[in-house]
Design a protein around this nucleic acid. Structure first.
Lengths: 115, 115
DNA sequence: AAGGTTACTTACTAAAAAGTATGTATCGCA
DNA sequence: TGCGATACATACTTTTTAGTAAGTAACCTT
């Protein structure tokens, strides 16, 4: 598989592309929470341990730009914004689920091997 | 899912754990090439575009430490070292295959959408 | 004695990702 | 008039990851 370009960026292989879409510390946790519900910014913020405003905002923006989530802003005060998965987001959730299950199995094995 | 510890390191969720095992620019390409063959250092080096000695060596070491590949050193001059997948490595190759296929689909869609 | 082959190692630099802290806008309400 | 609520934005620092360049060890062959 030769190098290729996606959205103007060079990638060396398909795995690298996927990793850039859902990799990093925060994207999977965000998508996971939107799996079957719409959530407000503040709800995500409270529900994802350790995340900061900066990280939550930037990752939400990237996920939106990449087409995985949609953002609905209500013109009210104080502000209200709702995030939810797009069709594309629902598709990639399946992959995340697979990866997640693999991770869970790893943890299990580790648990069982330390008596 | 609360934080947990794996090999002495804290993780926030199972996906993050998997990402650390096979993420980064080079681990998937290396594992992929060992999918169904043993390869020498120099063969990997030539077969993986853009990779440097430093990156190849460090990633091979980490994959070995994490139990995905085994390293067989022959006591000859010039040196000869062979790398191959362990059982654990063969397991995670399946996951990598799934991720890779997802990436290939993404590329296809992009291809077809630009006339 | 010098050169070739192979699998590394080491030092240094650059770029990317993440973390910390603080600030801002808006409007209703006390 | 100042405070609270919410969803951000911005500046700066730290950490992590990757890239570049050069060097080393060992033995065989010429």
């Amino acid at each position: 598989m030769p190098d290729f370009i996606y959205n103007g960026k060079i990638y060396y292989n398909p795995v690298q592309l996927v990793m850039e879409q859902i990799g990093g510390t925060w994207k999977a946790p965000i998508l996971w929470r939107l799996k079957d519900q719409t959530m407000r910014y503040g709800e995500l913020r409270k529900d994802i341990p350790h995340i900061s405003d900066k990280m939550l905002t930037t990752q939400l923006r990237e996920l939106e730009d990449d087409g995985y989530i949609s953002r609905k802003v209500y013109a009210v005060v104080p502000p209200k914004t709702e995030y939810s998965l797009t069709t594309q987001g629902k598709e990639i959730i399946e992959l995340i689920t697979t990866i997640r299950n693999y991770g869970l199995k790893m943890i299990e094995k580790q648990e069982s091997s330390k008596k």
